[in-house]
Nucleic acid binder design. Structure first.
Lengths: 182, 182
DNA sequence: CAAAACTATATCAAGTCGATATATATCAGT
DNA sequence: ACTGATATATATCGACTTGATATAGTTTTG
């Protein structure tokens, strides 16, 4: 384990207070959505491993006609471990875009298709900005506000760039070999 | 297989001409570095699977005192498959930043540490912009120029935002509980 | 009143990441 | 001339993550 992964972040979330796996997932969707994503498939195994390692403790709360809640709390050794993780050098930022990757093969797609593709990215980013702008005001902590603003600013810059430069690829994909597949 | 993955992209790279696994890796590092990354641990297994599926053919070139080159070419059915992949809806863009994630736990780090962290991200992004600016001129295709400009613009916006708003987190982390771990 | 979304758990195959291993060649600097 | 770094070229492996799927009752929305 060289750096921050789902395991460390579950631990980090538990420093804010005890929580169930489901609640941890929600934390990833709200607080961390800008910068880190994790699904149940990573969270539940992570919590099991953390329990085995003694970094979290788990108490079960029976509920009528619902699956029992498993409420996790961070232990002392868990907090130790997390603080050590926090002091490690972080990995480089990663960005992956299948849509923009597709553009590299613009010559193989009909021109129309390219335009629709770019329209969609712009639309996605726009929606993202709107959603963030709404939720940004509700954020309590300074770091959350900072990250929220970061997400908005960066996406707005991306939208502006795409609007101003889309012609570069939209014009290029016309003359080339039109190997359209039905 | 629902969308673009390393396998499809290897196929895509081979539409530009035959190549070895090593050369495909270089393509990911240059042309695709903006938007998609893949290592040998994904590329070599992908090429094996593609060979088994009959989507690529492989001819071996013996070299004296060097491991034999395996030169891959895309087949007709491979091109078919790739074009179908290209017409599928792409996944959402993903961004992951361990550094920015750390900022959520700013209260647990000494103020100095936070400042260093932000300095580093800004520095990383700056270097990225410089590198891209250099290589941008050499790019041949329009789509590569577009992506190059995209990378520069977005990171410049990120740098500007961080410089203008870093005080939000740098001031906040002072008063709170200083649970520093050596 | 039905359909959708929410609460809450969990697993699994397939895919990806990062490190490591093996060899040799070449190029730059001392 | 030697040393170390970088490049060519392959490949594997464990650990981790992803995305889909399953189960099952409750609450909200249209």
């Amino acid at each position: 384990m060289l750096l921050m992964n789902v395991k460390s972040l579950c631990l980090g979330i538990l420093t804010f207070g005890e929580a169930t796996g489901y609640e941890i997932k929600k934390a990833f969707e709200t607080q961390f959505s800008q910068v880190y994503d994790a699904g149940f498939g990573s969270i539940y195994p992570a919590l099991n491993q953390l329990t085995t390692s003694g970094y979290v403790s788990c108490r079960q709360e029976q509920q009528e006609k619902r699956p029992a809640k498993k409420i996790y709390s961070i232990t002392e050794s868990g907090l130790d471990f997390f603080l050590k993780e926090l002091h490690k050098a972080p990995a480089k930022d990663k960005f992956r875009s299948e849509t923009l990757t597709k553009l590299i093969f613009a010559d193989m797609l009909p021109r129309e298709n390219i335009s629709i593709l770019i329209d969609q990215v712009i639309d996605d980013y726009n929606n993202y900005v709107v959603d963030l702008s709404d939720s940004c005001c509700e954020k309590q902590s300074q770091s959350e506000k900072f990250l929220c603003g970061f997400g908005i600013t960066v996406r707005q810059a991306a939208i502006k760039y795409m609007q101003e430069n889309r012609h570069l690829i939209e014009s290029a994909s016309s003359s080339s070999s039109q190997q359209a597949a039905e």
